[in-house]
């Protein structure tokens, strides 16, 4: 009995350890990606299956995590090399003294059609525009994130403050049910959840605003890849290669709607009907990022009281050529 118990424990621990060890390729550079489960990561996952990273001499490992701050934490602990999230978490991290810089921007919003954030209200709430959201329960996915910024900025454009509404922090997947059942009156959401909400007749959703900021005449960076300064200085070439691979995969996906939908089903596990509504966010002037790209979002954070200024975009980025 004693022996078999020990054997069992032994086998269990071996199983736990065995699964953690991934195959490694001696000549390739191992890069661990910690990423938020969101749309712009799709090309990277697709590229990996096509073998594009391997061709570029990179051996990637992908670690999906729950939120932007967790991505930054993974980088800070040294358990990940490259992070993918919205721009706000790495900016906050950088301001807290973490040596993290953005090196590629993946998606940007431009009014009127290229928007990836929506403020939607249920019919039952009686909200028809931003002004009527006063005093209502509004949802967003996390404190200090892109959606909080969106609410603050849009409310400000209607002459309201965040104190004029009742914020409820709720993960994206739970928002639709909360809207339908009246637990919240309006919410800030992204796809695929927005597609599902707008297709739900019982909610009868009204989009009261879209885009992260009220003013989106100029493109606004939405999400980005970032890494520690240390990693970037050691592996500048790898950063360029990641950019090239990403660019190639993105172009392939954009050229073929079916490929895109299939990829959304495969990598984000979307239901096929949700995947049809999937649109990949893009950037107009290439993936390389400059301080000027980041500046509008920094200014918006300052304007809406989420950070204290002045902040200079150049301090947050590294420009990569590819």
């Amino acid at each position: 009995m004693k022996l078999s118990k020990r054997l069992l424990l032994c086998a269990l621990s071996a199983a736990a350890l065995g699964a953690a060890a991934a195959p490694s390729f001696a000549e390739n550079l191992k890069v661990k990606f910690a990423y938020l489960v969101a749309d712009s990561m799709l090309p990277a996952l697709y590229a990996n299956d096509q073998g594009y990273f391997k061709e570029a001499g990179i051996d990637p490992e992908f670690i999906p995590v729950q939120g932007g701050p967790a991505v930054v934490a993974a980088l800070a602990s040294g358990d990940a090399d490259v992070g993918y999230a919205a721009v706000v978490p790495p900016v906050n991290g950088h301001l807290k003294g973490l040596p993290i810089r953005i090196f590629l921007h993946l998606g940007e919003e431009i009014a009127p059609d290229k928007v990836y954030v929506w403020l939607a209200a249920s019919k039952a709430s009686g909200i028809t525009d931003l002004k009527s959201a006063k005093g209502k329960k509004i949802g967003f996915n996390a404190n200090g994130g892109l959606c909080e910024l969106a609410w603050r900025d849009h409310l400000a454009s209607a002459g309201l403050k965040i104190e004029d509404v009742q914020p409820v922090v709720l993960p994206f997947p739970e928002q639709e049910a909360a809207l339908e059942q009246g637990s919240i009156d309006a919410t800030c959401t992204i796809n695929p959840f927005m597609a599902s909400i707008s297709g739900n007749a019982k909610i009868g959703a009204t989009v009261i605003a879209n885009g992260t900021l009220a003013d989106l005449k100029k493109p606004l960076v939405n999400d980005a890849l970032f890494a520690t300064e240390d990693w970037l200085s050691k592996h500048a070439d790898a950063a360029s290669k990641i950019a090239a691979v990403y660019d190639k995969a993105e172009k392939e996906l954009l050229a073929d709607d079916k490929k895109m939908a299939d990829a959304a089903v495969k990598y984000m596990e979307l239901k096929p009907e949700d995947a049809k509504a999937f649109r990949l966010p893009m950037v107009t002037n290439g993936l390389s990022v400059t301080g000027a790209d980041i500046q509008p979002i920094l200014d918006a954070m300052i304007r809406n009281g989420m950070q204290q200024g002045p902040l200079n975009g150049d301090d947050f980025v590294v420009n990569i050529k590819y």
Partner: peptide, 15 residues
């Protein structure tokens, strides 16, 4: 909505 959990979460998310 409120409570010390919200304070903790805010602290984490602002590092």
């Amino acid at each position: 909505t409120n409570g010390i959990g919200v304070f903790l979460q805010r602290s984490q998310e602002y590092f």
